[in-house]
Design a binder for these strands. Structure first.
Lengths: 236, 236
DNA sequence: ACCTGAACACCGTTCAAGT
DNA sequence: ACCTGAACACCGTTCAAGT
């Protein structure tokens, strides 16, 4: 109970203790877990730290989630649901390109807002309401655009997987410890700018441009490429 | 020193002990780490377990790698180097589509062979020789195809990132514990096949097809989409 | 019914000590 | 020069016990 020298913010003893009249709930746990990871990154999401955040014994969370994996998936589904809810309600469902672009855009925002959760769960199936609504929207949009069920499924997955993969990769990079982040970020400059000219002429020549391309540029390029692919299928 | 009931293969006391005449080396450590993760997955890669594999005290590895991160990056670079070396030496460097497809294909094989390492490091910069040779090959290929330096860099990163992101996502899924893997794999069938018809008509209707699409189909679709994008840039 | 707290079997990493 | 082994500060999770 004596003050640990961990990088915990202000006070120590049950700073956020709930009063006994509002019992722990899955919703509250997810909310606090998202607060915590958003503020302090993926490595802050430990059961002990989360218990502290909730003013509760670390193991109390196990009354609401079987294990940490269930908790992470619940958080991910919440993030997906928030992205869904952030979609413009006046979206024209006939404009399939517009729907796909809007989904891609909100997913990007979601993974920027919650990189830690995204990096932990982007490749998982949550099975939750957020995911279900997103799947329904995309499949119905592609079916309405004129794709056969077989094609709609292939292109739904191509779109969703490429989007999730790109967001997940970015989120993974973003939720590294800051020391590792700097190490990776500086690599292009540190390494590629000083490669031997004879052995790596192209890398050397392009090094100054390598740092100019943004993650966002790349994301938009991939998204557009997949949209063009779907377009070609619809027309051919 | 007494036999632990961990899921360790055969014997216990220094099964693979090296004789003192071949000292530990970075190469040997990387090789054994790849063996280990390939056989037993990402969660087997602990310093203690690796020490056991090498017949050496766990902390001896710290003499060759500053920390576990350095070790993982070295392993990743070796995997990339092996993918590079597996490229057909008779590849026609004028045929940029052929080069890109070959690289995509070998990367896929590499991430299937070493999902654990891939999932740990696909979003990182290794700065090693494997990565450098791959970058050089792709940049020089795109430059020779006729892209300006600015365009070559954008399209190199679009291609490389989408490829790595897709491989990394697959690797992440593949290197989950088997119990979680089954949980996720069965989700489409368990969840989407029984969704309420009124609320999720499209998901329900497409559920039978969802399981038919393979990861490989999706990977090829994304790769082709990016190649088409580059093609359009070259012609437009 | 719900939460607590000790305990277990792990981690990565440091550092003084051994050879 | 290189490796060892104890130790430190963590993990997720279980389960008997408390209220």
């Amino acid at each position: 109970m004596s003050g640990e020298t961990r990088s915990v913010p202000a006070s120590k003893t049950s700073r956020r203790r709930r009063n006994r009249s509002d019992p722990l709930s899955s919703e509250l746990i997810v909310e606090r877990a998202l607060d915590l990871t958003r503020r302090e990154g993926a490595q802050a999401l430990t059961m002990r730290r989360l218990g502290e955040e909730l003013g509760v014994d670390p193991t109390a969370v196990y009354r609401h989630f079987r294990d940490k994996d269930e908790l992470v998936l619940a958080c991910m589904d919440r993030v997906v649901a928030m992205a869904y809810d952030a979609l413009d309600p006046h979206l024209d469902v006939q404009d399939w390109r517009g729907v796909l672009r809007a989904v891609a855009n909100q997913s990007w925002k979601a993974c920027e807002a919650h990189p830690a959760i995204y990096s932990l769960a982007y490749h998982r199936t949550t099975g939750g309401p957020g995911e279900r609504k997103m799947v329904e929207l995309l499949l119905s949009t592609l079916a309405r655009a004129g794709l056969s069920p077989r094609q709609a499924v292939l292109h739904y997955r191509t779109f969703a997987d490429s989007m999730l993969a790109m967001c997940g990769m970015k989120a993974g990079a973003q939720s590294l410890e800051t020391t590792l982040q700097e190490k990776d970020a500086g690599a292009w400059a540190r390494i590629y700018a000083i490669l031997p000219q004879e052995e790596y002429p192209a890398a050397r020549a392009h090094a100054p441009h390598l740092a100019e391309v943004t993650e966002r540029d790349i994301y938009l390029a991939v998204t557009d490429a997949v949209i063009s692919l779907i377009d070609a299928t619809l027309r051919g």
